[in-house]
Design a binder for these strands. Structure first.
Lengths: 257, 257
DNA sequence: CAGTAGAACTGGCTCAAGCCAGTTGCGTCA
DNA sequence: TGACGCAACTGGCTTGAGCCAGTTCTACTG
């Protein structure tokens, strides 16, 4: 009776289910190569196309990765880089270490980032609203960065700063003009970080994001819209993180108010 | 020259790219039906299989949804239900409204939940560690719930409570024995919530989750591992949320410490 | 012995054809 | 009029065949 129910499911699904079971039970270890599509086809009495379909299902689930010309491999789970709610804590600013670099170091990786571009632009409505600036003029500075752990791109970061604050600070240059980083600049301008507001969503990447984060199929992205709020309750900076979900997590350890 | 580069990309991708462009430019409005696979095949000079492939790509990106026998439709974006860091705030407990119900009401939906099961079990290592209980005995109670907005399952919630705390409180029954809900019970036991620790990840759903959250392809899940910490810094409850990412977001508005 | 050409493998993608299973609407029949 | 059944549509999936493009290793060549 179970068999009957099984039998009416598509063959590609049944093959995927069987292989998933074998992977989860450890019959195929992480990193191991699965039999070739042609061999699997023979084993399951299906045509290669159908096996290909089954493997695509598993790839979408993030269980396997196909490498052209080499084979299909059980995906090795990457350790997560945890971006914490304490990432803006003053304790990091004084030590000179960013939480990202600390996390990378923990995993024996070298963290670094590249500046992709800096521009003074006209904000869209939502952003103008959030930062309380005009949406008619070039009232914000946008900075684009990519972060790497070793050679893997890990997340893309876009920061928007009101021109009123950025003006005359050198934030239009690639090199951040302060020993404590960009938030040092804000403090000098009279904006100490009192609160943060983070809005978190997850979704499948756009084709663009697949390209610049070098994503394999079945890896979603986490998008964080972060706003820094100063001692007067005024927002003075917005940052968007787009992170690959297979290498990143978030962590919030906060008081209940 | 661009054409040459374009031409060496797989046909299914090029079709997907073209359709994506048309959807994003508004030529196909949200909810609208795309031409049938057979018509698209004719238009693009491809075979139906290839168009099917292209549509699967778009489905995986979360752009379209196929309905068997009816057609392929541009996905309508659901408004997000935002689970906030203030969801455990005392202000809600006294008003008798949960943040989930408030969010649903905002969207004109009726929120409700079902108890799937309650069990006294032996925790796994990580959980035993987190709650500081033994992993050798049935030292925790597990409660499983599903939350619905109207008829859509929105998230699945699993709560683990140390038996030492749950004992004698009636938390083994479906009906929570306190007017302020489960956290009222904890307070009576001397555990006031002082801090929360949330660990957030995103990933593709397991086939199980696809089933009970009724997920369409291309929708990731957000997983939140939440720990409640009392006035003495002791963890006394762990909850895992598995949320469909197309209907849910998280929001943390917290002080910088 | 070093270097290389190529065979034999891998997955990627497309075509062509067909059957099946949902959905919808229309026309017929009671 | 109302119910029912069927035709004509929709997507879902599989077979079978074939070409292409990466990778790997071997055996031959200089």
């Amino acid at each position: 009776m179970t068999d009957q129910a099984e039998d009416r499911r598509p063959l590609s699904r049944r093959i995927a289910d069987q292989l998933r079971k074998e992977i989860e039970s450890g019959q195929h270890a992480p990193g191991a190569k699965l039999p070739s599509q042609r061999k699997l086809a023979e084993r399951f009495g299906a045509v290669r196309n159908t096996v290909d379909e089954a493997l695509k299902i598993l790839a979408q689930e993030g269980l396997v990765v196909a490498e052209h010309g080499r084979g299909v491999f059980v995906r090795v789970k990457q350790p997560l880089i945890r971006l914490g709610s304490d990432r803006y804590s003053p304790k990091y600013r004084e030590s000179g270490l960013s939480p990202f670099l600390v996390e990378c170091a923990k995993q024996g990786k070298v963290g670094r980032f590249e500046v992709l571009g800096i521009e003074r632009i006209k904000p869209d409505n939502a952003l103008a609203d959030q930062l309380k600036v005009s949406d008619k003029t070039k009232s914000v500075v946008r900075r684009e960065n990519v972060f790497y752990a070793d050679t893997d791109p890990v997340y893309r970061v876009t920061t928007w700063i009101p021109w009123r604050i950025a003006q005359g600070t050198g934030l239009l240059q690639a090199e951040v003009p302060h020993q404590y980083g960009i938030h040092g600049v804000f403090e000098d301008k009279g904006h100490a970080m009192a609160r943060i507001s983070d809005e978190i969503t997850a979704r499948m990447p756009t084709p663009d994001e697949v390209g610049y984060l070098n994503l394999s199929p079945g890896v979603p992205v986490i998008e964080v819209m972060h706003t820094s709020i100063d001692q007067d309750g005024e927002p003075y900076e917005v940052t968007r993180f787009v992170m690959r979900a297979d290498m990143n997590g978030l962590s919030y350890n906060v008081p209940v108010e």
